[in-house]
Amino acid sequence: MDIFVHILLNNILPLSIIIGLGIVLHKIFNLDIKTLSKMNFYLFSPAIMFELLYGTAISLQLFGTVMLFFVLFMLAQYLLLEIVIRLRKYEGGKRAAMRNSVLFYNSANYGIPINQLAFAGNAYTLSIQIIIMMMQSLIPNTYGIYSVNAHKANWRDTLRVILSMPVIYVIPIALMMRGLHVPMPEFLSLSIGYLSHAFIGTALFTLGVQLGSMKGGISRKLAMDVGIASALRLLAGPLLAWGVVLMLDLDKMLAAALIVSSAVPTSLSSVLLAVEFDNEQDFSSQTVLVTTALSIVTVTAVIYLLRI
């Protein structure tokens, strides 16, 4: 019960307040969601990624192990998704939106606090979460962009968009500077810090604006699709992660951190991609909202079952 209340008060409620502000202010001022989306992609997301990677010590052994887990876990999710997509006969943009809503999970503003809660601020498990966050930032800015554009644009145009994303350059630069112990000028560190701190609030506010722009209720068909995506993300996700850590025979602490990292709700990246590229915006927004709400129960259950 303590974990349930903690997640509700420290994760769900703060997120909900910012989302609610986005809904209300959009109703009043009719805000430009495209501008908000571009700010997230080109400013705030790269800043928080650089700050975390540059400021965190990660051993090569841990990096390799977590990367191996991540690749196997993503492949397992993708295979399961393809079965569902074929059974449901999704086409075009809906296929991309379903993949993004399941494959991209909230490893930053939800995953990091949950990691700190579950493992009492352990620096080792935090470094694991940061590696996952790095990959969950890189993939939406590469595969995610390809996925939402593949059915409506040629590969050259899609590649041009991917190469314009700052995150794909920020990650190697931050790792190189960290590895070579390149000092950061204080004025630059402050600027990056200001931008980094704006990421979570702006991304959540953007989600609220998108929800506020929706007209009417959810159709029965959309509700079914949102339910399927939510089950794949919140239930199948940690189960597949559990299977992968068993296969790799990882130590208890590492395995638990990876399973918890896989149990979080759908990433805001799926909404930002949907908004930026006009692809199933209502479905993506509803999936983020539903998985975030349901995660109060599912994430608590995962932490409890792991006996951390």
Rank of each mutant, 00 (worst) to 15 (best):
F4W: 12
I17V: 15
L31T: 10
K34L: 13
K34S: 14
L36E: 02
K38Q: 12
L43M: 15
F44P: 04
T56G: 06
T65Q: 05
L75C: 14
L80F: 10
R88M: 15
K89E: 12
Y90N: 09
A96W: 08
V102A: 07
Y105H: 03
S107C: 07
Q116K: 13
G121E: 06
Y124M: 13
T125C: 05
I130P: 00
M135H: 02
Q136M: 09
S147K: 14
V148A: 09
K152T: 05
K152A: 03
W155D: 14
R156I: 09
R160N: 04
V161K: 13
I162Y: 04
M165T: 08
I171M: 04
P172M: 03
L175E: 11
R178L: 04
G179V: 08
G179A: 15
M184R: 08
P185H: 07
I200M: 14
A203I: 08
A203Y: 07
G212H: 12
G217F: 01
K221M: 02
A223L: 11
M224Q: 10
A229I: 10
R233I: 10
L235A: 15
L235K: 12
G237W: 05
T266N: 08
N279G: 03
T287M: 02
T287F: 02
L289R: 07
T291L: 01
I296V: 09
T298V: 09
A301L: 11
I303G: 04
I303Y: 01
